[in-house]
């Protein structure tokens, strides 16, 4: 199974957010999409998870057409999206947020097992299960958001800017956990980031997006070494 995006175009009103985009995300790899604000990164993920309609093109995960059907259907097909900005429900407790991610699976027993795995990944959440999510720090909320989507046992995880607004140390910790998840499970990750250096450091493959088009694509290490990419996107 791989994520195949072919000639994808997405319009946001009069703005063309994604312009004839094609690339493949290979199974069990961590692919990072980097690019400036407004490059179309979030739109790409929102389209793949069924939140935004596509204008034209194709996108599929295995046999599943990602451009058809609602977001709740995609989750059932193994595609889980952590949207931008610490996507947790503040009014619910930490545990309720986690349980929410596994509700559709129906089986309490299975979701308890997944919860154990998630809490091993993020022990901080285990100490705060009964607290409301709005009492958490920014980093903890991001952990909860990722934890919630892992509760769905996804095959493909779409992560939108997990580093947004977090302290550098916390960012490093979250990036490391994402890498650990990819190493220790069969999940495929498509990570979208403005923190280009941090994302490329943990990624296998890097995609540089500029105005809805691919500016560069290749092994993350090669992109880091490329002087042109360094100057334009990594800032040194």
């Amino acid at each position: 199974m791989s994520l195949i995006i072919r000639n994808l175009t997405v319009d946001h009103g009069a703005i063309r957010a994604i312009n004839n985009l094609s690339f493949i995300v290979e199974k069990r790899r961590l692919t990072a999409v980097i690019g400036a604000n407004g490059a179309g990164k979030s739109t790409l993920l929102r389209t793949l998870s069924g939140l935004n309609p596509a204008t034209s093109g194709k996108a599929s995960w295995g046999d599943h057409n990602l451009l058809k059907g609602k977001a709740e259907k995609h989750v059932r097909n193994g595609v889980s999206h952590v949207s931008e900005g610490k996507s947790v429900i503040p009014e619910l407790t930490v545990e309720e947020n986690l349980d929410l991610g596994a509700l559709w699976r129906g089986s309490r027993k299975e979701s308890e097992a997944t919860k154990k795995y998630v809490l091993e990944l993020f022990p901080r959440l285990g100490e705060r299960l009964k607290q409301r999510a709005d009492t958490l720090s920014g980093g903890e909320r991001q952990m909860l958001a990722i934890g919630r989507s892992l509760m769905a046992k996804p095959d493909l995880l779409l992560l939108d800017e997990p580093s947004l607004g977090l302290a550098p140390l916390v960012v490093e910790q979250i990036f490391q956990t994402i890498r650990d998840v990819v190493n220790s499970s069969s999940v495929t990750v498509l990570l979208v980031e403005q923190n280009a250096m941090g994302a490329l450091k943990i990624a296998d493959i890097g995609v540089v997006l500029n105005l809805g088009k691919i500016a560069a694509i290749g092994p993350a290490a090669d992109l880091i070494a490329d002087p042109a990419i360094r100057a334009a996107y990594l800032g040194f």
Binding site: A71, V75, I89, L92
Partner: peptide, 24 residues
């Protein structure tokens, strides 16, 4: 109950609920 959690979640945040697989 699961229904109760779905009801609350759908009320507070339809988008996150959808992304969690809730049939909002």
């Amino acid at each position: 109950t699961s229904l109760g959690l779905s009801l609350k979640a759908s009320a507070f945040s339809p988008e996150i609920s959808r992304l969690s697989g809730v049939r909002v």
